[in-house]
Design a protein around this nucleic acid. Structure first.
Lengths: 344, 344
DNA sequence: GTGAAAGCGCTAACAA
DNA sequence: TTGTTAGCGCTTTCAC
């Protein structure tokens, strides 16, 4: 019935050619010390027999899998899809494969992902930490086992590992400054969980921008949400009910901004005339909504590429040298669209 | 220096307890014929030594990897992210891992993904075919090797493998019917590459809906694009320049619809008053743009779950029985939003 | 209830 | 230039 199913190994090729498996292995791996003609014959037979190398066996023998494990919070956020794209570009060049694990922003899944990767013996882990995560022991475990770990975007300095992030502080500073330049004075901030480094940095950037421009900080205008559309909507409603509502909002990221926009629309206020708004992350939808959303671009593909490059860099180092962490900070870029442009 | 790095194997555990690796293996796998007390001691030492099972070795021995390989065209399309989510739900229950490969809608990457999965000995492949793909030999190869293959969404019946799709014909039929019910009579269709089954089905649904409602088919109003924002924009501009432009558009999917909307806005026409529009796929952005986009929901998570269930179903069958293909057709659901609602 | 031994498919010393 | 041999870590048949 199922004679179609082939289970050809190098031993089969060896038998056909009356040589040993070792020679076949070397030929297939283009080993220098093998006659050209032998290589040619081996390759021919391999094609004829429809041979597929068994990477599992090879991984076991070599002690490495040629796999980069990538942990992301969600594949439904285009930001991460784009970063992964960057990672894959570099990985492909180096003949590495990329394994993706989604945590759905949940601590338990994240732990499970780490576990899975360690058991599957991926050669290196690239990760972006979930919003929910506070305890970082599982990541420390990766390091402890001598597996290189690189964090991107949702990084954390406490772990002492290399990371690639955008300068969230600067991005937030510039975004806030932009709102000030548009004439706004009561600028609110809808922030995120403060244990998440990048969200904290964005808050700081916002605060410093106000300070530098001599605008008094107003605690009433700073809310901490849960970084979602719903949360953005709820926070904005709260802001709108204040005695003196804000004339601008800097949202911690685009989904929060989107929720805020829905709230603003629902009370009939105009954007940017009544309330100007800017987000962070340059999510795909921002360009298409009305008004189009001003935001901060994070160089996603570049971030992925740099993270992957860092990974290969570390792989080439000796085990001892791996401990020195490097931090790469990309410069964000302001994208001004309709939601915040008041001046011509 | 790097004493932290542990490489604990079952042999190490065995040594500590003065038993054999075989017993340790059985204990860890909860084999019935092992004393409870032995199991307990083994587990304790395993934790103490910080033992991580080596899945590679286990895979090699067992001849299976406990990995589902998933091939998707792009992680930046939320539709696929969502389907993968469904797949992961089921896979997690069964203690399987999910490996994702992005093809970027390119034939070459798709071939490489198949290759990679075959070499990594994934137990089953779930795939959605790239738009660019015409030749299907690489997928046939999967089948030939006895690895179960399940297609989802972008399926193709020629391969004779199981698949999960939404009823694209019905979805298109209903979408078109809806436009007719809104009073539209000159309904255009911006389609996709006709070698892609689902796009072809959508064209058929459109045509039949017109026929059933006695609206003459007008070839002038049917354009075939490349399924992208740019293509949607270009096709719509072409339609607008016609002697008699359409009063409605059924776009093959949401990104195409988005491009069309941009074109419509650019000439100052109103939606839905001048031109009503509906897309397909229920992409995340559709809800947030102005006007919000009517579309067809495809039960993405369910699609992933069903595809994964089909996969496990096949895995349990004997090799001979695997050949019978099953086709699961989910019912699409119309989502009416502002872009097409003319009547109260 | 546990041990001994073989082998999954591949690669790398070491030999020749 | 190629062969011999051993072993990566795990599981399983066959003993006892």
């Amino acid at each position: 019935m199922s004679d179609l199913i082939s289970k050809i190994t190098i031993a089969d090729i060896a038998r056909v050619l009356h040589i040993t498996p070792a020679t076949v292995s070397r030929a297939l791996n283009n080993h220098p010390g093998i006659k050209e003609e032998t290589k040619k014959r081996v390759r021919e037979i391999a094609v004829q027999l429809n041979y597929q190398p068994n990477k599992i066996a090879s991984s076991l023998r070599l002690g490495r899998s040629n796999i980069l494990g990538v942990i992301i919070p969600s594949a439904e956020i285009s930001f991460f899809g784009s970063v992964v794209h960057g990672i894959e570009k570099i990985a492909n060049e180096k003949n590495y494969n990329v394994l993706i694990y989604q945590t759905n922003e949940q601590f338990d899944y994240e732990k499970k992902g780490v576990q899975t990767f360690l058991q599957s013996r991926v050669d290196v882990v690239l990760a972006s930490i979930s919003k929910e995560t506070i305890n970082l022991d599982h990541f420390a475990e990766i390091k402890k086992r001598g597996v290189p770990l690189i964090l991107f975007d949702r990084a954390n300095d406490q772990l002492g590992v290399s990371s690639v992030v955008v300068n969230d502080y600067t991005g937030a500073f510039e975004a806030t400054k932009h709102l000030i330049q548009q004439g706004c004075r009561r600028i609110a901030h809808i922030g995120g969980q403060q244990h998440v480094t990048i969200f904290n940095q964005r808050l700081k950037g916002y605060i410093d921008a106000l300070n530098v421009h001599n605008i008094p900080l107003n605690d009433d205008l700073i809310l901490h949400g849960k970084v979602s559309i719903e949360s953005g909507r709820a926070c904005m409603h709260a802001l709108l009910q204040k005695h003196e509502p804000p004339d601008a909002v800097f949202a911690v990221e685009d989904f929060t901004a989107l929720g805020a926009m829905q709230a603003i629309k629902s009370v009939g206020a105009r954007m940017p005339e009544d309330i100007a708004i800017i987000g962070f992350a340059n999510e795909a939808f921002g360009e298409f909504i009305t008004p189009s959303l001003s935001t901060v671009n994070q160089q996603t593909v570049k971030m992925g590429e740099e993270a992957a490059k860092l990974a290969f860099d570390i792989l080439l180092r000796s085990a001892e040298n791996r401990l020195q962490a490097r931090k790469l900070i990309l410069q964000p870029e302001l994208i001004i669209r309709e939601s915040s442009r008041r001046l011509p």
